[in-house]
Design a binder for these strands. Structure first.
Lengths: 198, 198
DNA sequence: CTCGAAAGTAGTCGGTGTCAACATCACAGT
DNA sequence: ACTGTGATGTTGACACCGACTACTTTCGAG
């Protein structure tokens, strides 16, 4: 008796699918996700997902986009933990958070960087180093505190972070050394700053 | 008449499978590879591959291992193009070659770094920066030319390369800027070397 | 209140990985 | 020279998957 056990309409299947996909992505690769499996999980027929995503890739694209917004959240959270003007501390705080996120969600990151865009993926978000860091970099550059352009340094920093994440995910960096690796990596890239000023 | 059109035994199906897989990996993702497809390609029955690889993952693992040896070849080739004692030139030559390889074989690199080792993957080869670079780094460190340990710098360099490759594959670095990005990234990491000596 | 669009269902098709049972071949030991 | 045994390849089957079509139920704007 009681209320409908399985209402004909799910209510918000689309976001339920995204959630479930993101969740199972946290444990397995993108290849392990199956539309039918997700449908089963949500107690819905095997063809229901098709009403919201034309095909599997479209769902994965949506999940990837979700991932980028997760990164944005993480970065904003990192910004709150550090003095607004200390460029290096700023970058390290964001960097540690970024790398940790990547390692906790390896399949998601992989998806977000999927090269096989096949022309479908909408323009991906700007930059993992983020606007707030870019601002600081630009200011520092104007003050003559950087030996290279702010863009160049930003790219090097982002690459450093992405690389550390990749190596860690691949098992080439012990978990214990992670934060230290990030800090040291960024410091090494910034050494010239201090040196120039000294 | 002539000789057997399709001999019952293929001859060397195992390496033929690896070759075909590596080849098709150069155009699509690892998910696009199908054992049945490879078998069809090689004119062999759909269950034949199973005689050589217990399951698909085992074949992918073998391809990944093959990939690491390809990297070794590339790195050895890079070594021949540069003066043996110039550490920075050495690293840049290897770096450019490494990144180019990664970009030309994105799916292969992805496989080589696959986190889902599921406990099966045998211990992966040592280091993309490679023994020859490590030797130079150790010597430089002994001479007091490095501000950080050789291991730390090696890791930072490798991370930088891997990161640049990831960003480029993801479409975040224009192809034209690639070599420059590698050179500049490594130079930035090495700045303290020169500075210390000055 | 109605009716059309949105959301979900059922059934099907070709493709895939994996497994088991069988066929063929190479080659070592007699 | 002969044989039989293990390696290699084949056939057939099963369950699962993504995608498509046709059908049903529900919601909500007019």
């Amino acid at each position: 008796m009681s209320s409908a056990p399985t209402p004909y309409h799910h209510g918000d299947l689309r976001s339920a699918l995204l959630d479930a996909a993101e969740q199972s992505l946290r444990q397995g690769g993108a290849a392990d996700i199956s539309l039918r499996g997700l449908a089963r999980e949500l107690g819905v027929s095997h063809a229901a997902p098709r009403r919201h995503f034309a095909d599997k890739q479209e769902l994965l694209d949506a999940v990837a986009e979700l991932g980028w917004s997760r990164v944005d959240e993480e970065m904003r959270a990192a910004d709150l933990t550090v003095d607004g003007q200390d460029l290096q501390a700023h970058l390290i705080a964001r960097g540690i958070r970024y790398v940790r996120f990547a390692i906790d969600n390896p399949a998601l990151i992989e998806l977000m960087f999927a090269y096989k865009t096949s022309g479908r993926r909408p323009p991906p978000p700007p930059n993992a180093v983020g606007p707030s860091s870019i601002d600081l970099l630009v200011v520092a550059r104007r003050r003559g505190e950087l030996a290279v352009s702010s863009g160049q340094l930003a790219r090097a920093v982002w690459a450093q972070l992405q690389g550390i994440a990749a190596l860690a995910i691949g098992g080439f960096i012990p978990d214990v050394d992670l934060d230290a690796a990030v800090a040291s990596g960024i410091e090494q890239l910034m050494v010239n700053t201090a040196t120039t000023l000294a």
